[in-house]
Design a protein around this nucleic acid. Structure first.
Length: 437
RNA sequence: GGAGCUGUGGUGUAGCGGCCUAACAUGCCUGCCUGUCACGCAGGAGACCGAGGGUUCAAAUCCCUUCAGCUCCGCCA
């Protein structure tokens, strides 16, 4: 019974102002210890926030108190207009629940962790103790929750597709090969085929939040070997514009959600949320003309390199104030075989990339839904329709026009918060050289 | 896969041929301090300068090799 009543009395730090003048218990970690002779100030943090505790006199146990210990703190809540919370805790007792055995690899109680990213990631678990690092993952959680909520409202069903697959989806990307009993299998680079199959199978609108894997040996501040893909596929569309409009509303919803529930975390990064509204839709050929006119740069193929992405974002920001751009109608040669060719222009496809603050956030398209066209496209790319038999089956049984896209979750969070390196936006990143922790 | 750059106490940096017996900040240890909030003050420990080889009277500093990492390009999200 005693345990139970103690649990009931445990208060989240952000709730403390409601318990003014009451005896409470707080559990969390010590963030900072300031001893001033016969008075000491302890900063205690839990997942909801941070509070200053006051220890008066010089009790024996204070000797053993140190930053990052896991503690249970008993005390009474008193008003304090000096504190952000408006209250502080007059501490009567501290129980150390988890000791600290060695010196910390870097300082956790400064405004920023003053250590290099490599070192920080080597000690990832500890860097996550820093409120600002933890905030990145609260934002990620918010983005994903809003993504789910919005799509559920729109009659989408969340699905889970296999990450161990027999073949690659697009042929181009490098795949991680794995041993699968007596066969060779691969880690999925995209749920593309499966989400189309599930859509056509009758779920009609589907989405998935899951890791995807890319074995490309790139080594940049915006690439990962494993990242979270926010994927969706929608049936019965009348064209690409339906997909773009859905994405506009989705982004609007996500940013409204962050604004409402994540303002504390956003403030830690001085992050300004973008206005979504009507996102400019520019064909690649149009972007080419703009780049030639404004920057004297012309595209060699109907695709954007990263410099072009930066430039067109810069230009549209200047011209329209939009931080987003839909770049549409990429060349047929630069898009996978399941991309719908455009009716009005044989060179291009009903495809798009969403660019945000200079970086590609997602790609998407209307897909080919006609079996004959799809088989034709597969052959045209030099591939064998037979090797796509399980994908192709549903296309022979009433496949509706459809389209979708996939957002890189880490890239979105990275750009929202203005992080320098995408690895900062991953709990335990996997890149070209990192496999632990 | 290609190009460029960086490795100096626990951490972040300075020093870039001799004044280096390697500096500064922070962290750590000891002591003092009843209103701090990056608390303050006094004292202390801690680095053979990534590793190996070479040039030189002299190397943290120049060269080569190697290892580790960063950034950019290609490709992508």
């Amino acid at each position: 019974m005693k345990e139970r009543s103690e649990c009931m009395n445990r208060i989240w730090i952000e709730e403390l102002p409601k318990y003014l003048h009451q005896e409470v218990t707080v559990e969390g970690w010590l963030h900072r210890v300031r001893k001033l002779g016969k008075l000491a100030f302890l900063l205690i943090k839990d997942t909801t926030g941070m509070v200053q505790g006051v220890v008066t006199g010089k009790p024996e146990w204070l000797q053993d108190i140190a930053p990052e210990q896991a503690v249970r703190v008993h005390g009474s809540v008193s008003a304090s207009n000096q504190q952000a919370l408006g209250v502080e805790l007059q501490i009567s007792e501290i129980v150390v629940l988890g000791k600290v055995y060695k010196d910390l690899p870097f300082e956790l109680n400064q405004e920023e962790i003053g250590a290099g990213l490599e070192h920080v990631l080597d000690h990832r678990v500890l860097s996550l103790r820093h409120p600002k690092t933890a905030a990145i993952f609260k934002i990620q959680d918010g983005v994903i929750k809003a993504f789910r909520d919005f799509l559920h409202q729109e009659k989408f069903t969340e699905i889970h597709t296999p990450k161990i697959v027999a073949t690659g989806t697009e042929g181009g990307s490098e795949l991680f090969e794995i041993k699968y009993f007596e066969q060779t299998a691969y880690l999925a680079q995209s749920p593309q085929f499966y989400k189309q199959m599930a859509m056509g199978a009758g779920l009609q609108r589907v989405f998935e939040v899951a890791p995807v894997y890319r074995a490309e040996p790139h080594n940049t501040s915006r690439h990962l070997s494993e990242f979270i893909s926010l994927d969706l596929e929608m049936g019965f569309i009348s064209g690409l514009n339906d997909v773009l409009s859905l994405e506009e509303r989705l982004l609007e919803y996500v940013f409204a959600y962050l604004q409402e529930y994540m303002s504390k975390e956003l403030a830690m990064f001085q992050a300004q949320l973008p206005k979504v509204g009507q996102i400019p839709r520019l064909r690649i050929k149009e972007i080419d003309r703009i780049l030639q006119k404004e920057y004297g740069k012309s595209l060699e193929i109907l695709d954007l390199d990263s410099e072009s992405e930066r430039l067109i974002c810069e230009y549209m920001m200047k011209e329209t104030g939009s931080e987003f751009v839909f770049a549409t109608h990429y060349g047929k040669a630069n898009r996978p075989m399941y991309t719908q060719p455009s009716a009005d222009d044989q060179d291009v496809t009903e495809s798009f990339d969403m660019l945000f603050r200079g970086l590609e956030m997602n790609s998407g398209a209307q897909r080919v839904h006609d079996y004959d066209v799809l088989v034709h496209n597969i052959r045209e790319k030099g591939l064998q329709p037979e090797s796509f038999a399980s994908y192709l089956e549903i296309f022979q049984y009433g496949m509706p026009p459809h389209g979708g896209f996939a957002i890189g979750a880490e890239r979105l969070v990275c750009k929202i918060l203005g992080l320098q390196n995408i690895r900062e936006a991953v709990l335990f990143p996997r890149d070209r050289f990192r496999l632990t922790p």
